[in-house]
Write a protein that binds this DNA or RNA. Structure first.
Lengths: 127, 127
DNA sequence: GCGTTTCTACTACACTTGTCATAGATTGAA
DNA sequence: TTCAATCTATGACAAGTGTAGTAGAAACGC
């Protein structure tokens, strides 16, 4: 029911599939997961059930004897929440996070420049 | 024992105090926590115990009948791990994280420019 | 219509996390 | 030396998470 429920790691991964595929059955979701780390059918079923309880997905319709599920929250708001929580750990400040990203090589100077340009442009448009 | 153990939220907050204060007793840690959200003494004791099991702190010495604990891992490597895990959720890409930070207003264009300049400088120095 | 397949509903269970209580050991002070 | 204060050791417990099994309902193929 929560607008931005707290999702666990496994739930998040499942949501990614659901956002990607849209309306899906438990079977489809399970088979979409690469075989190497594919959990049992009922494991996926349990996770989808929990996602439903949390208001992250809803049943859209029925096909055969199976339910189809669709997202009830957006990827955006979910990721947003994740990041907000990380920022909180960092005492509310975002720059240390970016510094770490740079140091770990995950974010290059070039990435920064692109982001900066994009942002300048957006700002221009807005004014 | 792990070099970069996985710490829970409460454990992380406690580590922050320990990094801040250095060598500390359970009592000192507990009393350092703002009264509004200060947990019971034994709660802190349990958390410190778990941190010790995880290899995040170690007993440094004894004062009176109490132990003092000191960090056994660095803040840096710990934060690094947190961020690496978030990046993983984002499919290994860091730029969406920065985009979100910008959108949420946690990171300004000015922050970006500063970070970029710092990074350019560091790179110059390295070459 | 009836068996086979496929779903859902429900239960289970070990591990982690946040929270704390109780019991017994250690100290410090009178 | 003995008692109150303070620690440590240990146990407990509810909620959340990852994982899966079983029972019974529903649908599909013939």
């Amino acid at each position: 029911m929560a607008r931005r429920p707290r999702l666990s790691k496994a739930e998040l991964e499942l949501m990614d599939l659901i956002w990607e595929r849209g309306e899906s059955s438990v079977r489809e979701l399970q088979e979409t997961i690469p075989e190497k780390r594919r959990p049992a059918y009922t494991t996926v079923q349990t996770l989808v059930g929990r996602l439903e309880e949390k208001g992250a997905v809803r049943r859209s319709r029925r096909v055969g004897n199976a339910y189809l599920y669709e997202p009830a929250i957006t990827r955006r708001s979910t990721y947003r929440r994740l990041i907000d929580e990380l920022v909180e750990v960092f005492g509310g400040s975002a720059t240390p996070i970016v510094s770490h990203l740079i140091e770990s090589g995950k974010l290059t100077l070039e990435d920064l420049r692109v982001l900066e340009r994009e942002q300048s442009k957006r700002k221009d448009g807005a004014e």
